[in-house]
């Protein structure tokens, strides 16, 4: 599709979720979408900033929006839903509240109009469209029975992120079904996994993650598909501990949506970073040709 997108990686993708970055980059390259990293981007402050100083939180995001505008991007991809929501929230304020816009522009020392639209990974696949996705498939995902997990922030708060239906989202299902996968109906698609509380409140995160994993299994899923680095940490990296607390829970692979799109269009596990996951991928379910395993 030959598209160039501004790219805001955020700290997670440049840190312990580097597998998400390789997955997105490899996958989008296959569709001729080039990501250009925002020059001098700063951390959005995540939950820490909006928890203790909402103005700081908006200012950090506003700085990134101002850089994106200066560099002329019409769209900025922020694959982490927390970054994405924070950027959308700042943009919402900039567009709706002139007094606040001026204040933010002063603080971040750059002109600020809110021109650049912020998008998530699902929106990139939706803009590629099901028809083109289908055309690119080399390895249909016929054995995949995915529980599509949106978590909290891809769709919430709806007035800010303006994406899909916040109680019954189905965009991920549409993308995966175009690749030949089936998806299960289940109850925890938008329930919270505990997000960034992994370190500070580990036991709670384990209980929340357990409910999500167990519900996916109970509804016949053979994997969970996510689009958020924190969801991946809690469901994948912490899964061993979750299973220690709940020994009856079977092992369940957790893929990024871009992993599955990538595998379907013929990329290898190692190109996408799937081999970096803690719970090993069950590649049988991808019915991959032997030499790519």
């Amino acid at each position: 599709m030959n598209l160039l997108l501004g790219y805001y990686p955020g700290c997670a993708l440049h840190g312990s979720s580097s597998d998400y970055e390789s997955s997105i980059q490899a996958c989008l390259q296959a569709f001729k979408i080039r990501l250009v990293e925002l020059n001098g981007w700063v951390c959005c402050g995540a939950s820490a900033a909006h928890s203790v100083n909402p103005l700081l939180s908006k200012s950090l995001s506003a700085r990134n929006l101002a850089i994106a505008e200066r560099e002329g991007y019409t769209e900025l991809l922020a694959p982490c839903p927390l970054c994405s929501m924070e950027l959308c929230k700042a943009r919402h304020t900039i567009l709706e509240d002139e007094e606040h816009r001026k204040q933010l522009s002063d603080i971040v020392e750059l002109p600020l109009q809110g021109k650049t639209r912020v998008i998530n990974v699902l929106q990139v696949f939706e803009s590629i469209g099901q028809a083109e996705l289908r055309e690119h498939v080399k390895q249909p995902l016929t054995e995949v029975r995915a529980a599509c997990y949106y978590g909290c922030l891809l769709t919430r708060p709806p007035k800010v992120v303006e994406f899909d239906d916040c109680e019954h989202p189905n965009s991920m299902e549409g993308i995966l079904e175009a690749l030949g996968a089936s998806t299960v109906k289940w109850n925890f698609a938008t329930e919270c996994c505990g997000a960034g509380m992994t370190l500070a409140r580990e036991e709670t995160v384990i209980e929340l993650s357990h409910r999500i994993l167990a519900n996916a299994v109970a509804h016949g899923a053979n994997c969970i598909v996510v689009a958020c680095p924190m969801c991946h940490v809690n469901l994948d990296m912490k899964q061993e501990e979750t299973r220690k607390a709940h020994p009856e829970l079977p092992q369940l692979p957790v893929y990024y949506l871009s992993d599955l799109v990538g595998l379907a269009v013929g990329l290898k596990e190692s190109q996408l970073g799937v081999d970096k996951h803690f719970v090993p991928a069950e590649l049988d379910l991808l019915s991959e040709p032997a030499e790519t395993r």
């Binding site: 919430r156 708060p157 409140r201």
Partner: peptide, 11 residues
């Protein structure tokens, strides 16, 4: 301090 800012309540 326990709130994880999941935005469910707001939504």
């Amino acid at each position: 301090w326990l709130c994880v800012s999941c935005q469910t309540c707001t939504a």
